[in-house]
C-alpha cells in the first residue's frame, strides 16, 4: 500500500491554485484529472448518469468558484472535491425525488466499491482510493455494506434499513460503528507514517 507522496499532493494543489487564478491549462488538467472520480460518486448517489453529469458539471463550477479558499491542510484535493460532489448530489436527489433503492444497482455499488482498484496508473487518486477501499475491507461485511450505502450511495439510515432488511436502529449502529472503526484505521495509518 502506497502513501500519499508530497509530489503528488503538490501537483493536485498546484492545479487548484491554477484554477483559482483562472489558468486555462490548469483548469483543463484539473477537470480531466478528476472527472471520473467526481462522476463516479455522482452516479453512485443519483443512479442516473444524465443527472450525474449535470451534478458533476455543477461540482466543477463550485470548485472553480471556491478554489481560492481551498485549504490543503484540511483535506486532499480529491477529498475536497468529492465532499462537494456528495453534498451536491444528495442535495439534488433529495429535492427531486425519493431515492429508489434498487437492489441490483446498490449491489453493484457495494461490489464495485469493495473490490480492487479501478485505475491503471499509479497516481494520487489511485493511492487514495486504494487506501479508502482497504479500510472498508477491514470492516465486518455488514458494517462495510452499511457504510458504503450511506456514504457512497447517499442512502439515508432509513433506506439502509429497508435495503438491508434490518431495523432502523441496527442500520444506524452499523453505520456508526463502521465509521468509528474506519476512523481508528486512519489514526493507525497516521501514526505509522
Amino acid at each position: 500500500m502506497g502513501v500519499l507522496s508530497l509530489a503528488d499532493r503538490a501537483a493536485d494543489v498546484a492545479l487548484v491554485e491554477g484554477l483559482a487564478v483562472d489558468d486555462q491549462l490548469a483548469a483543463v488538467a484539473f477537470v480531466r484529472r478528476f472527472q471520473s472520480a467526481v462522476f463516479g460518486l455522482a452516479v453512485s448517489i443519483t443512479r442516473d448518469t444524465g443527472l450525474a453529469e449535470d451534478v458533476s458539471q455543477e461540482v466543477f463550477v463550485r470548485a472553480w468558484r471556491a478554489a481560492g479558499s481551498y485549504d490543503r491542510r484540511k483535506a486532499s484535493v480529491l477529498t475536497w472535491l468529492l465532499t462537494i460532489t456528495r453534498n451536491a448530489a444528495i442535495d439534488v436527489v433529495r429535492t427531486r425525488r425519493p431515492i429508489a433503492v434498487e437492489d441490483e444497482l446498490l449491489d453493484a455499488l457495494i461490489l464495485g466499491t469493495l473490490s480492487g482498484s479501478d485505475v491503471e496508473d499509479v497516481t494520487l487518486l489511485r493511492v487514495e482510493s486504494d487506501l479508502a477501499r482497504a479500510r472498508l475491507r477491514l470492516l465486518p461485511p455488514e458494517q462495510a455494506r452499511a457504510v458504503v450505502l450511506a456514504v457512497i450511495g447517499g442512502c439515508t439510515a432509513s433506506e439502509v434499513s429497508s435495503r438491508e432488511n434490518i431495523p432502523l436502529g441496527t442500520a444506524k449502529t452499523r453505520i456508526r460503528n463502521g465509521l468509528i472503526k474506519l476512523r481508528a484505521a486512519m489514526k493507525e495509518e497516521e501514526t505509522s507514517d
Partner: peptide
C-alpha cells in the same frame, strides 16, 4: 471519516 471514505467510490468516465 465520511469525507475520507468517499475516495472509495468507483470511478466512472462521463
Amino acid at each position: 471519516t465520511v469525507e475520507q471514505t468517499l475516495a472509495a467510490a468507483p470511478s466512472v468516465e462521463p
